[in-house]
Amino acid sequence: MNDSPGCPLTDVAATYMPRLSEIPSEPGLAAAVDQHAAAVRDALIPARRGSRNRAVRREELADYVLGFTDWLSRVDWTEPSGHDFATLRLTAVCWLIREHDLLDA
């Protein structure tokens, strides 16, 4: 999988990665993003829950993002100015992208 402009990880990172800069000034946001990142990680690697080897694979995260953003479009979701479930989840995806260096893989 390459990082072409149509890559779901590239698209999400371009839109939601800037929200990670808000985390240091908002402890509640840090906790929420951490919880969402854990939920995504658990959804991707349920058999390894609790394991120390919790690496997120790029292709699996891209598939997750495609499914999640497809659902958002089906429910006519629009991004709010604050943080709702979807923005927290997409911000957590960006945290995983950054943490696991998935755009440069």
Rank of each mutant, 00 (worst) to 15 (best):
Gly6Ser: 13
Met1Ile: 05
Asp76Lys: 14
Phe68Cys: 03
Leu102Lys: 06
Ala14Asn: 07
Gly82Phe: 09
Arg54Tyr: 04
Leu9Ser: 03
Thr15Gln: 11
Arg54Phe: 04
His36Arg: 12
Val40Trp: 00
Ala105Cys: 12
His100Asp: 14
Trp71Glu: 09
Arg48Ala: 12
Asp84Tyr: 07
Val65Leu: 15
Arg54His: 09
Asn2Gln: 15
Pro5Val: 13
Asp42His: 10
Asp104Glu: 15
Glu59Ile: 10
Ala32Gln: 10
Leu102Cys: 08
Ser51Met: 04
Ala14Met: 03
Ser51Asn: 12
Met1Tyr: 05
Pro24Arg: 10
Asp3Gln: 13
Leu20Met: 08
Asp3Ala: 14
Pro46Ala: 07
Arg74Leu: 10
Ala86Lys: 03
Ile97Trp: 01
Trp95Pro: 00
Ala13Tyr: 12
Arg74Phe: 06
Arg41Leu: 02
Ala92Lys: 00
Trp77Met: 04
Leu29Arg: 06
Glu59Cys: 05
Pro24Leu: 07
Leu88Asn: 11
Leu9Tyr: 03
Asp104Phe: 08
Ala47Pro: 00
Val33Ser: 04
Val93Trp: 02
Pro27Asp: 08
Cys94Leu: 08
Arg74Ile: 01
Tyr16Gln: 00
Leu61Val: 11
Pro18Glu: 06
Leu90Gln: 04
Cys94His: 05
Thr10Glu: 07
Glu60Cys: 09
Cys7Tyr: 06
Ala105Lys: 13
Asp34Glu: 13
Leu66Ser: 07
Glu99Lys: 14
Trp77Ser: 07
Tyr64Val: 08
Gly67Lys: 11
Ile45Ser: 07
Leu103Gly: 14
Thr78Asn: 12
Tyr64Arg: 10
Ala38Pro: 00
His100Gln: 12
Leu20Gly: 01
Asp34Ala: 15
Ala92Tyr: 00
Ala32Val: 02
Asp84Gln: 08
His100Asn: 15
Pro5Arg: 14
Arg54Leu: 08
Ala62Arg: 11
Asp70Gly: 15
Ile23Ser: 03
Met17Leu: 06
Leu96Pro: 01
Ile23His: 01
Val40Glu: 00
Pro5Phe: 06
Ala39Met: 12
Val65Ile: 15
Val40Ala: 00
Leu9Glu: 02
His83Trp: 14
Ser81Glu: 15
Asp42Glu: 13
Ala47Gly: 14
Ala92Gln: 00
Pro18Asn: 05
Gly28Ala: 12
Glu26Val: 12
Pro5Met: 09
Arg49Thr: 03
Ala13Ile: 01
Ala38Met: 12
Leu44Met: 06
Asp76Ser: 15
Asn53Gly: 09
Trp77Ala: 04
Ala55Cys: 05
Glu60Trp: 04
Thr78Cys: 10
Pro5Ala: 14
Phe68Gly: 05
Ser21Tyr: 06
Glu99Leu: 10
Arg57Met: 09
Val56Gln: 02
Ala47Met: 09
Ala38Gln: 14
Val65Phe: 05
